[in-house]
């Protein structure tokens, strides 16, 4: 988070803490309602600033999404390569197994 945001966050938090520390038991309802309204406004600003801090990472997430997609694509290529190899090896395997079967029959 930038220093200005950090400073703003601190000011807002200090202000909210000050409102929270007010003794409300003796306050008339109308004043308490205003106090609660003020607290809600400060709270919303604080949360917005905290979220803004997280927003700054959005671009990094986009970059990583691309990297994961690339890795997935490489795995897909590998998967296709395995499929091709299996097809080829299956043919070899078939010939070999026939050979073994033949040898076993001869021994029988």
């Amino acid at each position: 988070m930038s220093t200005s945001n950090e400073a703003a966050l601190k000011k807002l938090q200090d202000a909210l803490n000050a409102l929270n520390s007010q003794s409300v038991s003796d306050l008339p309802s109308s004043q308490l309602a205003n106090l609660e309204k003020g607290k809600a406004a400060l709270y919303a600003e604080i949360q917005a600033l905290q979220v803004m801090q997280m927003d700054e990472r959005d671009a990094d997430y986009t970059t990583l999404t691309t990297e994961f997609k690339n890795a997935k694509s490489e795995l897909m290529n590998l998967s296709n390569w395995i499929a091709e190899r299996k097809q080829r090896d299956q043919a070899i395997f078939s010939i070999l197994s026939k050979g073994v079967s033949l040898a076993l029959s001869l021994l029988a």
Partner: peptide, 11 residues
Amino acid sequence: QFQLELGGHPE
């Protein structure tokens, strides 16, 4: 709700 209970005009 609390603001309304107190007769306030909340956002």
